[in-house]
């Protein structure tokens, strides 16, 4: 993976549209409902209608296209491959539907993240996780873990790419251990540094 996963959060696009101002919980419920509808409602017409809905919402939110479409190329390729495969096994309509459904879901997810500040999303997850405090998981910790998770994906993608380059430079590309072991050791080292940094910033003290 050469292209870094840009991360859905951090792709927030400041704005004042209805979607920006809508409560986070409402957006997440809408996203969940759309996801479910896309899976449950069969047929190409419904699939195209779903895609049109998401494209319309993106226009309404005035999110620039490059914000939501960044990193979309692999999804488009997957969608095309999925469609082509279904066509090959003799069901072109289902292939087209599957491809459109996939695009709809990914665009909808990107739209929610483009119109939602990461800390608002964090706050929503934290609220939802409040009952977990009864089993020893404070809600702030849950929210922090989510945020840290999203922040770490691009870092890891870069680590994996660098490790692969190093393995290739040393002629190890055929041994998966030479590729994965250094990446994993660095990853754990990174996690521990992050843990130290969290402790240094007083997180976990309260």
């Amino acid at each position: 993976m050469r292209a870094p996963w840009a991360g859905p959060l951090g792709l927030h696009h400041p704005g004042r549209s209805v979607l920006h101002r809508a409560p986070v919980a409402a957006k997440l419920v809408a996203l969940a409902a759309l996801s479910l509808a896309v899976v449950l409602v069969r047929g190409l017409t419904a699939a195209v209608a779903g895609l049109a809905l998401v494209v319309g919402a993106t226009a309404l939110a005035r999110v620039p296209w490059h914000r939501t479409t960044r990193g979309l190329l692999p999804v488009v390729l997957t969608a095309v491959a999925l469609g082509a495969y279904q066509t090959w096994v003799g069901d072109p309509a289902r292939g087209a539907e599957a491809a459109v459904d996939l695009l709809t879901l990914v665009l909808a997810g990107s739209l929610v993240t483009a119109t939602t500040r990461a800390d608002d999303l964090l706050a929503a997850v934290t609220r939802a996780a409040r009952p977990l405090r009864h089993v020893g998981l404070p809600p702030e910790t849950v929210g922090l873990a989510v945020s840290l998770f999203l922040r770490t994906v691009p870092v890891l993608v870069r680590t994996v790419a660098e490790t692969r380059d190093a393995a290739r430079a040393r002629g190890f590309e055929r041994d998966p251990r030479a590729l994965v072991v250094p990446a994993a050791v660095r990853m754990v080292g990174h996690a521990r540094s992050t843990g130290d940094a969290l402790a240094a910033r007083g997180l976990g003290d309260d």
Partner: peptide, 15 residues
């Protein structure tokens, strides 16, 4: 306050 060598380990939030 504590500042580390690698800011990637220290910066927790996406922005």
């Amino acid at each position: 306050g504590f500042v580390f060598t690698d800011p990637d380990a220290q910066i927790v939030m996406p922005t």
